[in-house]
Design a protein around this nucleic acid. Structure first.
Lengths: 346, 346
DNA sequence: ATCGTTCATTTGAACGTTCATAATGTGTCC
DNA sequence: GGACACATTATGAACGTTCAAATGAACGAT
């Protein structure tokens, strides 16, 4: 970027001169209007509008020693980015102005996550804090950030240490449990599960919700299977699963891609999703929407809002919360669980 | 965001003191090393490393009257965001540091695009320029930005006025033409087309490439159909199209979602994609990747790089190019065009 | 020895804002 | 009428950086 100046825009002294007051009065009119008398206030604000004045964020930053910006890393390494990455970034971007800040994305082709990227942003004082995504066990970032005294909030729980509380996450088991409830209402009596290979905290959580839901609603426990987050492997796992099920049964899935696999496998054997087999996914991704799969939509707006509140609290020196925050996903019904005929209620 | 200060970090005077030189010498050591004698240079740089010093971007911005940031609007209105929006933003974010800047996303739930958002960023001097996406005929943004003297570059051509040249786009006809070439090589002899309803500049362009490709390679012109960017409608359009085709023929599509529709319709009648019917999509989206559809991948890195160069040139006062820039997509072969048997070459 | 030249380095000022504090005006109470 | 509280507005300084201009040192040429 070049170093030649902009076309001049109004500064606070221009406004002050035009309104016949001092710098500080203009500043007060904008930042603490109660301090300035009603008539000067209106006069100043009118000039502000006329000259289209807004305080320079750079000058503010320099004065306050606050960037008014939150960094967030984009995953530029994995070929297939997460389905919710963009909606989540959008939610953050929308929530940011309400917290008097803006988002600054950064990324690296080398690795994800990339500690040096965080370091760089901090040293140049481009951001005050970070929002983390894709945190995993043994993630170095929370450690490093706390060591450096840099506020952060994570979308997704932080595993290593339960004393880490600056996070918000989706309540996975409540989600799958709600999916089972919906299937029960819709008339499905046997519910299986397609999850990820055991050991992933998120996946195990979602599986528990399925178990609990089936028990709670007095349904029959269908078979379960696992596959990684790949359509091909989801399809073959689904085929095995369908062998153990009959028309009129349902499958709860730990992700939308897995659910898509079930849908494709069902279609391949002539079962109509929603009618012959109930399918629910998880994440509310564009994929689910595209294929008409009922899915658990993550409340990304609420989560983004909460995460920015968390970093704000840290910047304000507020005490840490006692635990991370869980948010309930909401079921969006698609064709994959629609009732088009009465199912086997005795 | 709050107004209490950061944990103190080293400033240029700290470095100067520690190195026993003046502010300006440190500044020179960083910005124009050739101006400072070799031994002081190394001494200063060593202290810079020890203290982990980096110039404050806010102070730089204030001094240079340059934000060193480029704004870009995220579409928060349409339910289904574009498949390439995130990869494109990632490409921009990766390219930005090479242009000594960073990206600042913004969005609004009200409308897309939202002029007041651009206005606000400019008034607060948060960004120097914008990268536009989803430009459409009668888009108010290019007009407004040029009027205001604000540099911009658009991903996607600007329609109204051929004197508008600050854009880069994908060469759609070259892309579909390359897809036809690939189908010809793979052994398909008849190639149909599934596009969008006539009238969209992008769609019409891609259709022309299909026509040209078929002619150039001496293939038989298959039937064509059109559907909007919706899976359901793509499937029904594809069904009609398949009625007019036989096993061993192929369909070039104007988008990945359309191609997905063809794939689903083909599967529904027992035709194996790639073997019984060739299918190509367009955009290189995650959808295509997920479903193994051959697609024309947009060179997003190149385009992002070029767009940032365009805004840089404008900031530098460089003369406008004579026309917008077109970039060639590259075909990624998936299962939907794979050769698993010899096809009807006589 | 003096003067100009060149190179390395330093000093003063400015970018636009807000904090801390000072100055001014207005009214109230005794 | 003077003192005091209070509300309103104004002034100086500082945030960290870089530009423009000034200083000082070294060196040849006269």
């Amino acid at each position: 970027m070049l170093n030649t100046p902009h076309p001049a825009r109004a500064t606070i002294v221009d406004v002050a001169r035009a309104a016949g007051v001092s710098r500080q009065t203009v500043s007060n009119a904008i930042n603490s209007p109660e301090r300035v008398s009603p008539d000067t206030l209106s006069r100043v604000l009118q000039v502000v509008e006329e000259l289209n004045y807004r305080p320079s964020s750079a000058a503010r930053t320099l004065r306050h020693q606050r960037a008014g910006a939150v960094g967030t890393e984009l995953n530029a390494v994995t070929g297939t980015p997460s389905d919710v990455a963009l909606p989540f970034l959008t939610a953050l971007t929308l929530a940011a102005p309400g917290h008097a800040c803006h988002m600054v994305p950064f990324a690296s082709r080398e690795a994800f996550p990339m500690l040096s990227g965080y370091q760089d942003m901090v040293r140049r004082r481009l951001v005050d804090a970070f929002v983390l995504t894709d945190t995993h066990p043994a993630d170095p970032r929370p450690d490093w950030l706390e060591q450096a005294g840099i506020p952060y909030a994570s979308f997704g729980r932080i595993y290593d240490d339960s004393s880490r509380v600056w996070w918000a996450d989706v309540d996975g088991s409540a989600g799958t449990s709600a999916a089972v409830a919906h299937l029960a209402e819709t008339g499905f009596r046997t519910v299986g599960f397609l999850g990820w290979p055991a050991g992933s905290a998120v996946g195990d959580d979602r599986r528990l919700g399925w178990l609990a839901g089936v028990e709670q609603h007095g349904l029959a426990l269908g078979p379960e299977a696992a596959a990684p987050q790949s359509l091909r492997q989801a399809i073959s796992a689904a085929e095995r699963l369908l062998d153990g099920l009959a028309v009129g049964d349902a499958i709860v899935c730990a992700s939308d891609v897995l659910a898509l696999g079930v849908q494709q496998a069902a279609l391949a054997r002539g079962w109509r999703p929603g009618r012959d087999i109930g399918i629910t996914g998880f994440d509310g991704s564009a994929t689910a929407q595209l294929h008409g799969i009922s899915t658990l939509v993550q409340p990304l707006d609420e989560i983004a809002e909460h995460l920015l509140t968390l970093v704000h609290d840290q910047l304000a020196g507020a005490p840490a919360p006692t635990r991370g925050a869980l948010f309930l996903p909401t079921l969006t019904v698609g064709a994959s669980t629609v009732t088009t005929s009465t199912k086997g209620t005795p």
